[in-house]
Nucleic acid binder design. Structure first.
Lengths: 368, 368
DNA sequence: TGACAGAGGTCAAAGGTCAA
DNA sequence: ATTGACCTTTGACCTCTGTC
């Protein structure tokens, strides 16, 4: 019998008593390899009745063992395997390690989505810039053309919401969700997505934020146009400054946006698990990237994630600002803002969100 | 009950209360076999949360006990096994493995602070209730004396605020801050600290939260006592359930609490950097612990941190609830609540917070 | 001080997973 | 659908620790 070999480094290699492959221990009563072990278990469990097509004396070697199941099973029994060593089926084990969904590809797709929306934004700004509107609500002392009016704010929010829907539609992970869940995510995270975008755009500014249409809104002018909750100040103090200190980059920004978007506890979401899985995907990508980053100051991913609590509260405050603005008639709140940002229910009409989720890009461009 | 058999030689054989296999003694509070003993220990240690794939009533016998881990664990608990009988991991027996890095002093101190406050809480409950409770267990009916009244809610908030100040005072990292910054942190994070504590206390409850005085507040009773913002429901849906799914443990809870407390962008904080440094210390501890925890829990630290955005918003909503309750005169809002939670400025009197930060423990006990 | 009960740990041999 | 390399869980058996 040749049930033992000497390996390259002088170690002993035990061979499978059934097929002479390298054995991995004793299984069901016989020294055997993982292949024969699995084969025997499956055969017994499924009560297979194999019939040899030849003479019941097939060679069972590593390379030929799959040629005749009947003879292989016969040899398993001959080698001492016992069917009663097979136990009942057990509970499912925790899902095995993911096949590494290649976080680089995930990032690539996220960046594409981002660039797609950036281009869309640029084209819209160019188109609307030619029209000069002076709705005359508030005039700034420093009549810089780029300082935002209340109307700019409203327009900017509208644009960003429309862009956000486009962005969300372009995420491959979203296709696994029902349209209702997609809408729920959009509604629950719209304000945050907008604010995060504003903060990121404003990284190089000092004491002001940059709206979607590139108008600037200084901290101390915000109160004049209805920012009762000091949202602008809080964006700067609690988001822009920490982000700048961290030196957040575009990739980190888009991952963070995706993570906050796929919030499994968003109201109205039914399939929490699917959302959680998507979030986890991005979380893994974030942690991987941060651990590989050269400027990987310690706990980078954690510090980035810790931007989100502030973001969520500031977003909430912005929603309040908008609600108050509408209440007092300061601002024109359209149906997109009303539905996505303020969560107004309009059972009478076809919801704008569902519509937007289904409509092609060109329609959206017109809308903006 | 068939918990005993007579063996071949006339000796009595004790049976496992979980699966009826031969028992090897009492383990973690229940007569059980070695299999169930090991299963329970592993399940608790690894913070597994199993889901029954059938109807939560699987047979647990010697031959079938491995078919459903959810039901097996359920039976372990039913048979009287207690998770708190599971001790910390010890040094490996013999000389097998485990380098066992130096036990983290930061975590030790945090745990001490927590236990200190737990004891304080217990003593206050005992003093004020003179009834001993078995908090957080399965028993619980609608007409239970333990259902909270509006008064209980107010008392509970007050107690928790007082306890929080004690907790904060006991953190060694806080001594590096000025009293003003300490007060600012307390004010900005009080609501969150309270909510996180409530959520953690309520992990084993279903559809209800457990107040600081061990009164229970069911989700559907909350609206009746002024919970306009559905805070209780949101605590359960957005915090308790995710925390339970994660299998958060005490150490993770206390670190998370410390991280949220040392929020460098809290309004009124002057020395942002000192707060940031403290936060980073705990963030490092969290990431270290999560990375060392048994394999399979990917991105654990990130997932824990992602509880915080929900926490911050829910906390905000609770503050609103309290504000409204005061506005409509539903509830008696004392100066501690008013100053710490609602951020009322009272320039005329000596602020309660500064006072509490400076006063010894005995005074505080009287206060509660 | 020694027997015991109930904590802890070990590791062979069961189980399951999932790309190929 | 089956295979098999690779990973997880189980439980019989053993050590350690505190108590009486």
């Amino acid at each position: 019998m040749f049930n033992m070999l000497v390996g390259e480094n002088g170690e002993q290699i035990i061979l499978c008593h059934i097929c002479n492959d390298k054995a991995t221990g004793k299984h069901y009563g016989a020294i055997s390899c993982d292949g024969c072990k699995g084969f025997f278990r499956r055969s017994v469990r499924k009560r297979h009745n194999y019939v040899c097509r030849f003479d019941k004396c097939c060679d069972i070697t590593k390379n030929q063992r799959n040629a005749c199941r009947s003879c292989r099973l016969q040899r398993c029994i001959m080698a001492g395997m016992k069917a009663n060593a097979i136990q009942n089926e057990r509970d499912a084990i925790g899902k095995r390690k993911k096949p590494e969904p290649d976080s680089n590809q995930i990032l690539e797709l996220l960046l594409q989505s981002e660039k797609h929306c950036q281009q869309l934004r640029s084209s819209v700004i160019k188109r609307t810039e030619q029209v000069s509107y002076d709705c005359g609500k508030v005039k700034w002392k420093n009549d810089d053309q780029r300082v935002a009016t209340l109307d700019d704010v409203g327009k900017s929010i509208h644009q960003q919401l429309a862009l956000m829907v486009e962005w969300a539609k372009s995420l491959s992970e979203i296709s696994k969700l029902t349209v209702e869940d997609q809408a729920a995510l959009l509604k629950c995270t719209a304000a945050q997505v907008i604010i995060l975008g504003v903060a990121y755009r404003s990284l190089s500014l000092n004491g002001a934020i940059c709206l979607a249409n590139d108008r600037l809104l200084p901290k101390d002018h915000a109160a004049l146009i209805g920012d009762i909750n000091c949202v602008v100040g809080r964006i700067i103090d609690e988001l822009v400054v920490p982000m700048r200190n961290l030196g957040i980059d575009l990739v980190e920004y888009v991952i963070l946006k995706a993570i906050l978007f796929f919030n499994p506890v968003s109201r109205g979401v039914n399939d929490h698990e699917a959302v959680e899985n998507a979030r986890l995907l991005f979380l893994q990508a974030l942690e991987k990237r941060c651990s590989e980053s050269p400027q990987g100051c310690e706990c980078r991913s954690g510090r980035l994630l810790l931007l989100l609590p502030s973001l969520q509260v500031v977003a909430q405050q912005m929603v309040e600002d908008v609600q108050l603005a509408r209440l007092f008639g300061f601002a024109n709140v359209d149906s997109l803002i009303s539905e996505l940002l303020l969560h107004d229910e309009k059972p009478s009409t076809d919801p704008v969100i569902i519509q937007s989720l289904a409509s092609p890009l060109e329609d959206v461009k017109q809308e903006m």
